[in-house]
């Protein structure tokens, strides 16, 4: 089900880079029951870290209260077109994924 794919865009405008990212993840809180009434185990992204040109620009800590297939947007300054923006997440099961995008 979860393909751990990440869509990411980083656009520079007037000196500010706006990053928009969409991660595929079930984001299960661990408090939900399935159709048969048994608990669905917790499975959610705990940490997202973003590096721009090798420097940390944002670290997000999440609970299962973030919606399924999480969306994240933030802005930072000081980037140049062509810089590499790298986003990685790690979930509570220790799975992780990384994606990179060029600032455009």
């Amino acid at each position: 089900m979860a393909t751990n794919s990440i869509k990411i865009r980083a656009q520079l405008k007037d000196g500010v880079t706006t990053v928009k990212a969409l991660m595929t993840h079930p984001m299960e809180t661990g408090a939900r029951k399935d159709k048969d009434g048994s608990m669905i185990p917790a499975h959610f992204i705990q940490e997202v870290s973003c590096e721009a040109a090798g420097k940390n620009v944002l670290t997000a800590y999440w609970s299962g209260g973030v919606s399924k297939n999480p969306y994240l947007s933030f802005k930072y300054s000081g980037a140049n077109k062509g810089d590499v923006l790298k986003l990685s997440w790690t979930d509570n099961k220790g799975e992780s994924a990384t994606a990179e995008a060029e600032v455009s």
């Binding site: 999440w62 933030f74 930072y76």
Partner: peptide
């Protein structure tokens, strides 16, 4: 729900 640590230069 979430906590964000902002880096230097992050808005």
């Amino acid at each position: 729900v979430a906590s964000y640590d902002l880096g230097e230069g992050t808005e």
